[in-house]
């Protein structure tokens, strides 16, 4: 067991250093995740002109599909892959920065 000084873990009050960086990227990715997923559906609701949900996005076609279908069905899974990619890239750099003093490489 470590004798390092410690403070209570709390997502809303992260300590400085590695955890601070980790929480920051987590929140940024969460916003990208939630905004694109639920934000887009909300936007469609906001813009609807009929009870079934016809809206600005349903009028255009992209890659053979109505724009809203393309965005939700084709783009969002790809967006999630991109988000995971960005998260990993950031965490790799964060780990490298914080590892220099303590470890030669991540373990």
């Amino acid at each position: 067991m470590s004798d390092k000084p410690w403070s209570e873990v709390n997502l809303l009050r992260p300590k400085k250093g590695y955890m601070g960086g980790e929480v920051l990227i987590t929140l940024v990715i969460l916003i990208g995740w939630g905004g694109a997923t639920f934000g887009f559906q909300l936007l469609q609701k906001f813009l609807e002109t009929t009870p079934q949900g016809e809206n600005f996005f349903t009028r255009f076609t992209f890659f053979n599909l109505p724009l809203n279908v393309w965005f939700t069905g084709q783009f969002l899974p790809l967006w999630f892959v991109i988000l995971c990619f960005v998260f990993n890239l950031y965490i790799d750099r964060l780990t490298a920065r914080h590892s220099r003093t303590r470890y030669p490489y991540e373990h």
């Binding site: 067991m1 470590s2 390092k4 410690w6 403070s7 209570e8 873990v9 992260p14 300590k15 250093g17 590695y18 955890m19 980790e22 780990t95 914080h98 590892s99 303590r102 470890y103």
Partner: peptide, 13 residues
């Protein structure tokens, strides 16, 4: 709580 703070979230501090 100490383990969580020092090892899970503080492993590189």
């Amino acid at each position: 709580r100490r383990f969580l703070a020092t090892e899970v979230h503080g492993h590189l501090d």
